[in-house]
Computed example of a mutant assay.
Amino acid sequence: MRVAVADDHPMFRAGLRGLIEDSAGLEFAGEASDGAAAVELCRSIAPDVLLMDLRMPGLTGVDATRRIVAEMPGVAVLVLTMVEDDTSLLATLRAGARGYLLKGAAPDEIATAVKAAASGQVLFGAGIADRLTGLLAATRQEPHPFPELSARERDVLDLLAQGRANPDIARRLGLSEKTVRNNVSAILAKLRVADRPSAIVRAREAGLGARPGAQFDGFPGSWGSE
């Protein structure tokens, strides 16, 4: 079973390489230091499994996962990251990842998840599965007030309603800032509003953007570009 690694930290890549080479039935196939390189690596060697970080320079892990799954469905993408917020979890799964582990996972847990992904299973790390169940249950019980928006656009709108700027939204969703700007433009068009503050008003009126302990006292002083 051939396994590749995509992570921007050389020491972490080296550690994963050692883990793979020491695990029975696994073979190290190659490595990449960013999302674009991960896509090219999969195109050239077609590994059985790619261990993918989310936050990398250039093309993010989420966008790289989406491209790999679309172009090379035989490559199982398994996310291994330090990012553990709910928005990133859902964005990653929507992109087609076969599992989600945190970097604190034990070596045997990672090896087990790799083998599960290669066999077509979906596996989540400790605590992730329970959170995902709760998120999916909430999604089923509470239809979104803006059905005209795509899943990604709804995530962006929710973060907009929290008063977050484009760089923060990009970081939280594992997207590029250009992708976030494109999504904001699409949101404005679909909601038929003239500007970003107007979209935020509509989102908050619909109940989006609430965070525990958060208070909205008007709009932040700088919204950034669309």
Rank of each mutant, 00 (worst) to 15 (best):
V3E: 03
V3H: 01
D7L: 08
H9V: 15
M11L: 15
R13D: 08
G15S: 13
R17C: 12
D22M: 10
D22I: 00
S23I: 08
A24K: 10
A24P: 10
G25S: 12
L26M: 12
L26R: 04
F28I: 05
F28R: 08
E31S: 15
S33Q: 14
D34Y: 06
D34F: 04
G35R: 08
R43H: 13
P47C: 12
D48I: 03
D48W: 00
L51T: 05
D53S: 11
L54C: 06
R55N: 13
P57E: 08
T65D: 06
T65G: 07
R66F: 06
R66A: 15
I68M: 05
V69S: 01
V69E: 02
P73K: 11
V75E: 02
A76M: 06
V77H: 04
V77K: 01
V79E: 03
E84Y: 12
T87Y: 04
S88W: 03
L89D: 02
A91P: 01
L93R: 14
R94W: 13
A95K: 05
A95H: 09
G96L: 13
A97N: 07
R98T: 05
R98H: 12
R98S: 13
G99L: 10
Y100G: 03
Y100T: 05
K103V: 04
A105M: 09
A105C: 13
A106K: 15
K115M: 14
A116G: 11
A118E: 05
A118G: 15
L123Q: 13
F124P: 02
G125R: 08
G134Q: 12
G134C: 07
L136P: 03
L136V: 15
A138W: 02
T139M: 10
P145Q: 07
F146G: 04
E148W: 00
L149V: 07
E153C: 04
E153T: 11
V156W: 05
L157W: 06
L157M: 09
D158I: 02
D158V: 01
L159H: 12
L160I: 03
A161Q: 01
N166A: 14
N166D: 04
P167Y: 12
R171D: 12
L175S: 05
T179F: 01
T179H: 11
V180L: 07
A186M: 12
L188Y: 10
K190S: 09
L191P: 10
L191S: 11
D195R: 11
D195Y: 10
R196W: 06
S198Y: 09
I200Q: 08
I200L: 03
I200N: 02
R204E: 03
E205W: 00
A206K: 08
G207Q: 09
A210E: 14
P212M: 02
A214M: 11
Q215R: 14
Q215V: 14
F216R: 12
D217A: 13
G218W: 03
F219N: 00
F219G: 00
P220Y: 01
G221K: 14
G221E: 15
G221Y: 09
W223K: 00
W223L: 15
G224L: 08
G224A: 07
G224N: 09
S225G: 14
